[in-house]
Structures are given as C-alpha cells and as structure tokens.
Design a protein around this nucleic acid. Structure first.
Lengths: 210, 210
DNA sequence: TAATTATATGACCAATCGGTCTTATTGTCA
DNA sequence: TGACAATAAGACCGATTGGTCATATAATTA
C-alpha cells in the first residue's frame, strides 16, 4: 500500500500519478514498465515518488488492485438481481457487462489483460496475496445452481464448462480487439451482441445436427 | 535470418546457442529477455553473437519461427489422414495432438505461449511477416466442410464457432498448466483426455437440458 | 519568531541493457 | 612461409533501469 504521504496529496496530484501509472502498466509488462516514465508523465520528481511508494511493486499492486476493485464494483450492481435469471440470461449478462466494462473503462480493461499475461511471479503473487483470488468460483456457483434446478444436461461436466465459460469470456474481448483494434467501438454494439448470441447458441444447443 | 557465420558454426555450438535462446525467450518477453544471458549461458562472447545475428530481433524471429515450424511439422503428419474423419474426431485429434506436442516439446510450447502474449509490436510483426500467419484458417476450413456435409447445425455461426474452437484449444493447455504446473505430466494422460472429451461433449450437444 | 517536522527535488549510484569496435587468433590459399 | 580473410573476444559506449540520499523548501507547532 502507498505511504500516508501519498494519500495526503491533493486530489489532482494523486489522480495524475495514478493516471500515469495506469497508462504505463496497461501498455507494458511489470518489468518493462518504467518508473521514470511515470514520474515524467505525472510531473513529479523521482525522489517524491519514493516518498509515496516504497517500491515499484507497491505501486503495481495498488494500481492492479484498483482495477480489480473497479470491476468488482461494476459487476456487483448486477449480481443482486442475478439470482432470478435463467442460466442463459446470467451468462449473457456477464458477457455483455464485460463488454460494457471494457467500453466504459478501457484502461482498466487493458490493465486486467496485461495482468493476465504477466510473467513476473513476484508481481503476480503480490497482487493475488492482496486478497482477490479472481472470482473464478462465480461461474462454478452458477453452474451448480443451474444443475440443481435442472437447467443443465446432467452429462455436462461442471469443471469443463467452468473453464469453457472463462475462455469464452476472453474470446469476447478477443473478438472485439481483433475486429476493431484500438478503434472506439462505440458503434459496434450490434456486432458484438450478435457474436455473444451466436456463442451462447452454440453453448446451449451444441453444434451437432439434430 | 542469422548470418552465414552462424550456419558455419559447428553443430554443437549452434545447438548450444539455440538452446540458450529458447530458454531465455520462453521465460521472458521480447523486451525482458537478455542477450547477455543468452551469451553467458551458451558460452560465447558478446562480439561473437553479433557475428552470428544482426540483431536481437534477428535471433527472436529465428527462434520463434523455429518453434512454429516444428509445430507445423508435428501436425502435418496428422493432416493427411484428416479428411476422412468426422468433425468430432478432427477436433479431438487437434486437441489431443496439441497436448502431445506440449508434452514432447515443452520449451517450444512455452515459446509459443510467450509469443501469444507478446506486447512488442515490432517483434510480433517481424515474426508474422516471416510468413506464418498462424493457421487460424484451419478451423474455418474444417467448419465449412463439415457444414456442407451436414455435420453441423445450420444455425451455428461459423465465425463464432471458429473463435470458440481457438479459445477452447487454449483452455486445454490452460487446464494442464493450472492443474499440474511445472510437474512432468506424463502420468496425467487420462485426466487430460477426460477434460477434452467433456469439452467436446458440451460443444457438440450443448448444455441445455433436452 | 524559532524550532521542528514533513515534503519536494534531482544529482547520483551500481547494474544492466543492446550494440560497437578494436584487437587477437585462427583458417585458407599461393 | 607470407598474406589475407574469417572469426573470436571482451573492453567499451551511451542509454536506461530501480532506488538512494543529501539538501532545499514548506507547513506546523511552540
């Protein structure tokens, strides 16, 4: 966690540092990201930086945690009305909300993506130790519930489905990135929704003829 | 491409350099990987290195291309008898062979994974420019053929299925890595096969009850 | 106002990076 | 053997890295 000195900073300065850090860490890996650049882009001296943070790692954990918390906050609004939905609607909701999140907070999304690719074990474990074990279990809970309600074919393996849902979640972002790149994809709502629906159709009905 | 000096080298020395490079590039990103380390681990002088390769990029492209070619070679043996198989068998074959490849050439597999996470645009485009546009189209061809044969439900969107297959392919490796990590997973054949079958069952029959 | 504490600053450090360059050694041909 | 080309070698270069530290300034307390 940042030192108290950092939190005593005027809001504008705090934001400026955070913004520069998000920028840097969303573009480069932990090792490649540069403290010097972050200092330069937020107009603070190197010495000042180390009055605010003990480490590069300190800042990294803080920034990634920020992104994770923002995503959790974003999703939590949905999760209350979630119980009443069918599994199909639940999954679609998660996909759609994921796209919305990326659209609303593209830098946070990029940050998360960068983190998922992170090689540095120390950096990764420091973030995970911070408490957020990623809500992988979310899908698992959904699956178990849906199974007990009889919504899912009993022959379906829960664990395999869980992994599939996770990877399909990624492929939605992948779809957007592949097709529209850095472009502001504000207008491509329909395309993305179609892709999600097509994917869900396959997931629910299978691809086999008859 | 390496300079002719490199190819004139005694086999043992060539192999030693390649091995050190594979080691380095499979552990770190293009930027983080260190030429110094590669020199040290292969017992050659820095100056010698630049007699063999023009660039860090030169070596990188060479090494990644090597891995891709090895994978293509590995898969090509299957692809001949491929036509006669049903779609289910084709897909299972690809998955199973992917696992086999990772088991047989773990370093090449790690290299490929590292490349798929690569941030450096110049490095990525240099590799892709080398000709290997990745056989993404392979799935697409399979799908189209299977559709025309009536093996696939007409409602299934080909492009969505294509992306799904790619991400499912990744999730198989993910499954192995998550579950067994660095361990020699020679003995886990059955687990992996079960996972593949479970995934394919879902893909073909869907998860919906009835 | 004087003393004390908190913060801001950038020169500085050793380490490492990718890459160069001069020099020493080796191999080849006449 | 002598001349010339190929290769091996590592000291060296400027740039950059994460991090330190002495010093200057600002804020706070007495």
């Amino acid at each position: 966690m940042p030192k108290t000195t950092f939190f005593n900073l005027p809001d504008k300065k705090q934001k400026s540092i955070i913004s520069a850090a998000i920028d840097e860490f969303s573009k480069a890996s932990y090792n490649s990201a540069s403290i010097n650049q972050i200092c330069k882009n937020s107009n603070i001296a190197k010495g000042s930086f180390y009055q605010y943070f003990t480490d590069k790692l300190d800042l990294y954990v803080y920034i990634i945690t920020l992104a994770i918390e923002e995503k959790i906050k974003f999703f939590s609004s949905v999760l209350t009305e979630f119980q009443s939905l069918s599994l199909l609607e639940q999954i679609r909701m998660l996909f759609v909300k994921g796209v919305e999140f990326a659209k609303l907070y593209p830098l946070y999304a990029a940050l998360g993506e960068q983190f998922s690719k992170e090689n540095d074990e120390i950096a990764v474990s420091a973030v995970l130790k911070e408490g957020y074990k990623q809500s992988e279990s979310l899908f698992m809970k959904m699956i178990d519930k849906a199974k007990s309600k009889g919504e899912i074919n009993k022959n379906v393996d829960s664990y395999a489905l869980n992994i599939m849902l996770q990877s399909m979640n990624n492929s939605v972002s992948e779809f957007m990135k592949n097709k529209y790149g850095e472009v502001n994809y504000e207008k491509y709502d329909e395309d993305v929704n179609n892709f999600i629906d097509s994917t869900l159709y396959i997931l629910f009905h299978g691809i086999k003829n008859n």
